[in-house]
Amino acid sequence: MPLLELRNITAGYDRNIILRGFNLEVEKGEFVSLLGSSGCGKTTTLRLIAGFSEPNEGSIIFGGRDITHVPLHRRNFGFVFQSYALFPHMTVFDNVAFGLKMRKVPKAEMRKRVMDMLALVDLEGFEDRYPREMSGGQRQRVALARAMVIQPDLMLFDEPLSNLDAKLRVRMRVEIRRIQQELGFTAIYVTHDQEECFAISDKVAIMNQGVIEQMDTPANIFNGPKTEFIARFVGFENFFDLKAEGGAWLTDSGAPIRLTQRTEGSAVKACIRPEDVLIGPPDAGFENSVPGEVLVSTFLGRHVQYNVRTAIGEFAVKAEQDHVYSIGAQVSLGLIANKIIPIPQTNC
């Protein structure tokens, strides 16, 4: 039985309905990310789970209990805010100890748990500092410590790393994942950064306009996006149509394409990553060959990026730099068969 279930949730206010008939399941110990661009409903979902707002319809089941109407302060979920929401008038110690104070934990035990947690997030010695005296990264760790020290049943993260610089973000996401695995709590993590969530999640739910388009492991989504939206999201840049005719898949210009992935229907949108498109002279003899003309050629160092015009659309190609084709060169592209992902037209 999943630890957390959202059943048929409708949420929003006035004329702004954000979630409609929304469902979600999270297993115990899982690190699940909700990924999507602004307005897709990921933050709304997280806040509903936390208890900051109530759904108009539907129910939230946690550990088998219906907690839809359980008030915020009784849910025992840790929440890490994007802005950290540290209490400015309290020291680091008091901030972290706050949740324990609410639970009337005795002083000695409280002190031990707080200090242990500070050590875990690498903030030993900072207990008497005030938030305003600390850097963004340090504050983030205080926020983390504060939420985790209460040993919550569930940890909720609302884009916690957005306000940090790139290097720190990478370091911190590794930390968060490490601590999650060490302490073993269940986490729901909201972000708009695809790389970040793929790096640390067990499962990713990609959301678009209040609906989960696909929820799966990062690898499965990366290699097998189920919708064009997701495909674009995970880096597929090249899309072309294929129609089934007489047992084979044909492009719009009639060229046959060999697919290795099975798919349904008689019309699909096929997609392929720039890295998986071979480029060579017109007589290269590639499988799934598509002739074209180079429009743009960009030298990236290790790779060269091309935009190639073909009869079936413009292709983005990323190739090693052993041979550089210049603008206007006639080339042929080879679409690596097992890298072509078909998306049934019904899903586009």
Binding site: F52, H73, R74, S83, H89, M102, R146
Partner: peptide, 26 residues
């Protein structure tokens, strides 16, 4: 900021306690 009282609530503070410990001092 509103998220301060939300944070307090998520940590187990009732509305009254959040008011006394967060809003009032600030």
């Amino acid at each position: 900021p509103t998220d301060l009282t939300e944070a307090a609530g998520s940590l187990g503070a009732t509305r009254l306690v959040a008011f006394l410990r967060i809003v009032f001092p600030l």
